[in-house]
Amino acid sequence: MYLKTFTLAAAVTLAALTVTMGGAAEARDQIRIVGSSTVFPFSTSVAEQFGKTTKFKTPVVESTGSGGGMKLFCSGVGEEHPDVTNSSRRIKKSEFDKCTANGIGITEVKIGFDGIVLGSSKAGPDLDLTLSQVFLALAARVPVDGKLVDNPHKMWSDIDPTLPKQKIEVLGPPPTSGTRDAFVEIAMEGGCEGVAGAKELGLEKKACHIIREDGAFVEAGENDNLIVQKLESNPNAVGIFGFSFLDQNADKMKGAHINGVPAEFEEIADGNYPVSRSLYFYVKQQHVGVIPGIKEFISEFTSEDAWGEDGYLLDKGLIPLSDADRDATIKAATGLQSLSM
């Protein structure tokens, strides 16, 4: 008796599973998006709005990181592969080649900018840094008197006497993060160029990317909220995170001026703020018309309601392109222009 019910239950569940697995063979009717965690808040906002206002299903958005997204996106054509990937950097040549080899045609859509700020608690001193000072504070090795030595700077005032007499303590994202990639590429590499004698000692390009590991820079995890919380309890520390987190926490946090430019919305939009990067999403052309709604999704993303001056993406912290750039992007995107490299 006992055994019979048991076998019966097992058989029923097995049958049920087979049925549901069989159901998976139907064509996918839902857009699948992967990619950058920086673009994630914007992509999801558009996806939600798209789901509410059109007859299509709400797209599924996964946060896999820019690199992980590209890997999935470029792995092939077919409904088991994603239709769109978000990226907080431009597609690399190697990734493009892989995509092309797998028969994928790509349309690139640039959606706006993201600023990377050096934020600190309102209770801490104001910081006005140049990129070179940022480099001198954070690089693993810096030139001193014509020689390359392990970073000797303990206080900000060691770099420049006009800076506050305060221990250098910077919380930032780990190397797996796109924010970290962009920060070392723009701030560290940019700062490196301005340091006298750095180039002669071989400090250029990638050599500038190495961040010190003597405790002055703390890897605080991928979660920007966590960095903000830690800064709140430690007013002397400085954190590296995305502008949208500064925007949301403006009552507790302030951003350091970089090269004299404050970390403000307008300054980033105008391109005056030096540490900013472009955000993109990439569309698989072969899926347009196969997976329903991709064209409409592009239209929603590039609509004035979304990324325009008063759009909802700006409320989420996106820094928009200029009017002219937006118009040009809309044309290229809705015309599904192919990317070539």
Partner: peptide, 17 residues
Amino acid sequence: IGMVAFIVDIPRTFTDP
């Protein structure tokens, strides 16, 4: 396996996201 995702629609079957 892609279950860390933004999903608005409430799943109804075993194969829904």
